[in-house]
């Protein structure tokens, strides 16, 4: 499995990266950790002529813990998310989810930005960020704009990001004190995508619920959150089952996936409730 050739660029600031992308149009792709793109290139299902590696842009590697929100640079690796004590204090659900992504080596390279921007319905971070109501900063030739995670995903591998834009930062609002949280992932083995995964946050009078790999985008379900906020667990599950639209694959047929989705969601809710202060 050998990728086709390409020109390699390693800019040191975002503006240069955007400029290179602009110069080469759809011939160019952004390279973050590469753990989705490189396998695709090795299978020759992707053959960009230019790769714009973001690893030289120091500002994209930062995590800032603010009073109201946490800002995570796009090149922060899953490994960094797990290791960061401040983040674990502010948003422990991120560590819990990151630990369930792939394996240690992949987490060394795989980044939050790549995980979010690729638009792969199997990725864990998009559903989590929808649950947390995060916003993504996108920088393009026209400057910076923000898009809500809940509005970012259009269909599998299609997102609100334009080809000449770079997802640079993730802004995650801090949940109210005492909120319960859980990320629950059912998978065949370590290294696999989710058969079904659920992100749950809940607290006094609110709840937010999103699921992964059960449709061609992550599924954040407002009705499910509303039901859960009212204490109606089964209503929450029922609403979510209405919202998801899983496809049959090697992980199983649709009916199984719905059943597994319900199980994952119930487990996540139970753990989140137990963690609620």
């Amino acid at each position: 499995m050998i990728p086709a050739g390409f020109e390699y660029h390693r800019p040191t600031d975002v503006a240069s990266a955007v400029a290179i992308l602009g110069r080469h149009g759809d011939e160019a792709r952004v390279l973050a950790g590469g753990h989705s793109l490189i396998p695709m290139m090795k299978l020759r299902m992707a053959a960009p002529a230019h790769l714009v590696d973001l690893r030289g842009i120091a500002e994209l590697g930062r995590i800032e813990i603010g009073d109201d929100a946490v800002v995570i640079g796009a090149m922060v690796a899953q490994h960094d998310l797990i290791a960061h004590e401040g983040l674990a204090q502010a948003l422990p659900i991120i560590r819990e989810a990151a630990l369930q992504i792939a394996d240690p080596q992949v987490r060394s390279m795989g980044t939050i930005g790549g995980n979010l921007a690729n638009g792969d319905p199997g990725n864990d971070m998009p559903g989590l960020m929808q649950c947390l109501d995060a916003r993504f900063a996108l920088v393009g030739p026209g400057g910076e704009r923000e898009v809500a995670a809940r509005e970012f995903y259009e269909s599998a591998y299609f997102t609100a990001r334009e080809d000449d834009e770079i997802l640079t930062r993730v802004i995650v609002p801090r949940p109210p004190a005492g909120a319960g949280w859980a990320y629950e992932k059912i998978k065949r083995k370590i290294g696999d995508y989710a058969t079904a995964a659920a992100a749950v946050m809940l607290g006094e009078g609110f709840a937010s619920v999103a699921m992964t790999n059960l449709a061609d985008t992550p599924v954040w379900c407002e009705a499910a959150g509303r039901a859960l906020a009212a204490g109606d667990v089964e209503g929450c599950v029922a609403a979510m089952l209405e919202a998801i639209d899983p496809a049959e694959d090697n992980r199983g047929p649709v009916a199984f996936k719905k059943h597994a989705a319900a199980a994952a969601l119930r487990r996540a809710i139970a753990r989140a409730q137990a963690r609620r202060a």
């Binding site: 590469g34 240690p104 992949v106 390279m109």
Partner: peptide, 8 residues
């Protein structure tokens, strides 16, 4: 730790 088959 990285997997050197998936790093250019």
């Amino acid at each position: 730790s990285v997997k050197s088959c998936t790093v250019f």
